[in-house]
């Protein structure tokens, strides 16, 4: 074995021990994440903490509870945008919301909501389609820091040009500037868009079902999971949906890992929107 191969296998052992510690001490289970991706984040965490090897972080993790938050924050990737992949939001608006309209109360779950941009995008759409007042959005994430930021409803004004372009591409009916107040370098989401949202800590790797949802949106979270954990999360989504309910995944995610067959019908291949099947439900026609 060459020196570099040897170093890599030692590093893999250190990561395994770190994962064990995280699970044994705090119940956080990162074992079923894609390893190559996870390893890059472990290296970034090591550099951020300023230690020379991953194993040096193990005693800190065991003895310092405060360190846990740094770790969870370092291990989760928060990159998100408002109306990311605008066509997906356009599809939800044009093809899914007309069905949601038939329910007196609408429950939506955004799993892995990061810092909330996707949640508020959904709230804006619901508002424009006059559905927000009878909707409840449950927004969850494993990272508590993310949830705090999401709950504050504050994002950077620098992002406004990008978000405005996305909003228009998602079929925005008003002006994006109607949906935030500018204060110094921040944009703040107004109260009426926030009052129909509840934020909760929820870990897709260990926590249970979230009942009776009409729409579950979980985008760019499953790409971080291995097949086993993807299957587990997809089962959770299936169990959380009402009959005929909708599931929206990220544009590079799919049901491939789901071991149950014939449980969903594919409504949009590009937007990755699926409908939960049941004998008494006639699924929607496929759209683009």
């Amino acid at each position: 074995m060459s020196e570099i191969e040897n170093n890599i296998s030692l590093e893999n052992i250190e990561i395994e021990l770190f994962l064990q510690t995280l699970k044994l001490c705090y119940g956080y289970d990162y074992n079923n994440y894609n390893f190559a991706s996870f390893k890059r984040r472990m290296r970034a965490l090591k550099n951020k903490v300023g230690v020379s090897s991953i194993s040096e972080m193990i005693p800190i993790l065991i003895h310092d509870k405060q360190f846990l938050e740094t770790v969870i924050d370092g291990l989760s990737v928060t990159m998100t945008d408002m109306f990311r992949d605008p066509d997906v939001f356009l599809n939800l608006r044009n093809n899914i919301f007309p069905v949601l309209k038939s329910y007196p109360r609408i429950k939506l779950w955004v799993a892995g909501c990061a810092t909330g941009e996707e949640v508020y995008s959904l709230a804006i759409l619901l508002h424009e389609e006059k559905l927000l007042s009878r909707s409840m959005i449950y927004a969850t994430d494993v990272n508590k820091k993310n949830l705090e930021i999401a709950e504050s409803g504050i994002f950077s004004l620098d992002k406004v040009p990008d978000y405005t372009r996305n909003y228009q591409a998602a079929g925005g009916k008003a002006s994006f500037s109607d949906y935030y107040h500018a204060r110094y370098s921040n944009a703040i989401i107004p109260e009426y868009l926030r009052e129909r949202v509840v934020f909760n800590h929820h870990n897709l790797a260990v926590d249970t079902c979230f009942g009776e949802m009409h729409l579950v949106m979980c985008r760019n979270v499953l790409i971080y999971f291995n097949t086993e954990l993807q299957n587990k999360a997809l089962n959770l989504f299936y169990d959380s949906l009402v009959r005929g309910g909708f599931l929206c995944l990220g544009t590079k995610e799919s049901l491939r890992a789901f071991t149950q067959t014939d449980k969903f019908s594919t409504l949009s291949n590009y937007s990755r929107i699926y409908q939960k099947l049941s004998p008494d439900v006639i699924p929607l026609k496929e759209f683009d």
Partner: peptide, 21 residues
């Protein structure tokens, strides 16, 4: 590689994608 995603080769030789910075 799809636009806007990093492409990685996993330790079993399969592709994985992520939206890390």
């Amino acid at each position: 590689a799809p636009a806007n995603y990093h492409l990685l080769i996993e330790n079993n030789g399969s592709f994985s994608l992520n939206i890390d910075p």
